Computed example of a mutant assay.
Amino acid sequence: MLKKIITIMATSLVFASGLVHASLVNVDYVVLDKPIPQLHKDKVEVLEFFSYSCIHCSHLEPFMLKEMKSFAPDTYLRPVHVVWDDDVYYNLARVAAAVNSTNMKLQADPLIFDAIFNKHIELWRPEVFNKWAVQQTAFDGQKLVKSYNSLENAAAATSMRKMGEKYNILSTPTVIVGGKYELKFPQGFAAGMKTLNELIEKVRNENSARAASARKLPKSIGASLAASANR
């Protein structure tokens, strides 16, 4: 009996200290009524609706980039910039589209947020962005500008706009795992990363179970008869 009491006390202390994190539905995350199709259905997608003009997104970004660096090969981040007007948001979505197409999110995003919020540089103005980007040394600014000014860039920004409208994204950041679990941050972004990893594992297990179920083939009639004859 004493051993049992000690075990219960130890378990309580572990939970109280935050060493064990058990995410709660409708608290740490919610299940979407309308799932969002993933780009790669057999992998684990972390979909992030964000804006470079969103202060909360700037606070989340360091945590998200850190997690992104440690993602398993079956997990990927899908950044989608919201477009809520034809000026600031649209032009910042063009910046995001350029960052995505050049795979420079890790290098460029911290500097973009810093330029907007700390240095008050109006990167939503195309001429300002072009001038600022080519001056950067932490990433290939020329490559980013070339992508920004390409024909594909406007189409990518428009696609982001349509996606945000289709799924009625009204606030940022909005993070969705596996196309169906929307991450919440009731205890802040650091705690939210624990929930993020739990949801990634949840989706991974669901994908594995679905794949295993698909591999099961029905027994042939002959095999069934043979089994019956051997009983």
Rank of each mutant, 00 (worst) to 15 (best):
A96E: 05
K131N: 15
V95D: 04
Y90F: 15
Y167H: 07
M104R: 07
P173W: 08
E201Y: 05
K219S: 13
A154S: 15
V46K: 04
D85G: 12
E165I: 02
H81P: 06
L144N: 09
I5Q: 13
F139S: 09
R231K: 14
N153D: 10
L199E: 05
A154M: 13
E165K: 07
S70E: 14
G178V: 02
L123P: 15
K143T: 12
E127C: 01
F113Y: 14
P62F: 00
T102D: 01
H81I: 00
K143G: 06
P37L: 02
S224Y: 14
D87P: 02
S208M: 13
T137W: 07
S147N: 07
S213W: 11
G178T: 06
D33L: 04
V95I: 13
D42E: 12
D140C: 05
I121K: 08
S159Q: 15
L60D: 04
D85K: 00
V203C: 03
H21L: 05
H56G: 00
L196Q: 09
D33Y: 00
S23H: 00
K202W: 01
K119A: 09
D87W: 09
A214I: 06
L65P: 04
E48I: 06
K184C: 09
K3F: 12
N100I: 04
I6Y: 11
S12L: 14
Y90K: 12
V88W: 10
V20I: 13
Y52S: 03
S228A: 14
N118K: 14
I36F: 05
L183W: 06
A93L: 08
T137Y: 06
K66Q: 11
P62N: 02
L32V: 10
V30A: 08
A16E: 01
N118D: 12
A157P: 00
V82L: 03
G192F: 05
A209L: 08
L183I: 03
N103P: 01
A97F: 08
G18T: 04
V31L: 04
S150P: 08
P126H: 12
Y167A: 07
Y52V: 08
E182S: 10
A229T: 03
Y89R: 05
V177F: 09
Q142K: 15
R94V: 06
V27I: 11
Q142R: 12
P218M: 00
I5F: 14
V14Y: 02
S51N: 13
S159L: 11
N149T: 11
N118L: 05
D140L: 01
S17K: 03
S171E: 11
F50E: 05
T75F: 07
Y29K: 01
V88I: 15
I8C: 10
A191C: 02
K66I: 01
A209S: 11
Q107H: 05
F49R: 04
T158Y: 12
Q136W: 06
E182R: 10
S70H: 13
